[in-house]
Design a protein around this nucleic acid. Sequence first.
DNA 1: TTTATATCGTACCGTTTCGGTTCCGTATCG
DNA 2: CGATACGGAACCGAAACGGTACGATATAAA
Lengths: 161, 161
Amino acid sequence: MFRMTKLTDYGIVLLTHFAAHDDQVAHTARELALETRLPLPTVGKLLKQLSRGGLLASQRGTKGGYILSRPAREITISAIIATLEGPVAITECNTGESHSRCEHESFCSVRPNWQIINDTIRGALEGLTLADMTRPLTRSARPAAFSSALPVRAPEGRSAL
Amino acid sequence: MFRMTKLTDYGIVLLTHFAAHDDQVAHTARELALETRLPLPTVGKLLKQLSRGGLLASQRGTKGGYILSRPAREITISAIIATLEGPVAITECNTGESHSRCEHESFCSVRPNWQIINDTIRGALEGLTLADMTRPLTRSARPAAFSSALPVRAPEGRSAL
DNA sequence: TTTATATCGTACCGTTTCGGTTCCGTATCG
DNA sequence: CGATACGGAACCGAAACGGTACGATATAAA
């Protein structure tokens, strides 16, 4: 469905590092591993994925390394997650498998609305860019997409989502 | 971090079923399993969790069953996820463990911003209620929290988040 | 041209947790 | 009292997550 693993966290940390030092100098996997204190093999793996996903541009050879493929404020958190987590299936009904059971009306008549949740999350995350992550944001100076999505009613469940 | 497993999906399906038939009649686990075509043991497990989380009220005995603890429009998707997934750790730095490495400035100076993402998602999901899930919503008739979080810029990555 | 550097691709593996099950205890109504 | 239905705990196979290893390829400098 929708998940956000530790690997994705690491990926955002790495990309944030690029955005914070947004010179046009290429950063190597080893350098990033040292600065972020993340294991080198994992960093390498993530950089490959991000490069293949079009978020990073790679340069091989002696003076090689990675740079952002475009300005940080044009890279949304949504795009990063989509790249690292792969295409997330909306529901299992929509994956193409022939589930004849889904014809049962009382079952699938409520299921498609699940997509509303995915759309909501994606919409909110497309309002956040890498540039927003480089500097600590106060509650009053956040991107429009975030503040407008703030709740009006008081949450009564556990506060930690 | 943040995840949305199949079990949570099932839980929302079950709760949606309650909201759609919002009579005050108690629904049993077996009845819900039949109508949603979900395995009975799983349904029972989920109902227990939702009951313990305060979203459902339970009645034991012969005429027992479950009912919503409050009106569907007062139950947010955010609360459901928080109940079923448990308290999601914001970052591993904030779990209380003594990670002396986190004092390294170039490391943790970017990490706390990760919470922005969680807040964004939670904020968006607190704008969605169970009542919103019972009827198919057109793009023009969605809750305010959703439409206002729609992207302005075009997503360029994979469209499926 | 050679050599060192660093990305690229693939395949592999231990551990965790996810999804689902089973069993028994407890409470309620007829 | 006994049939029904929730409550809680323990258990298990399978899948993924997180991390590793190794060789191939491309680039720049010597």
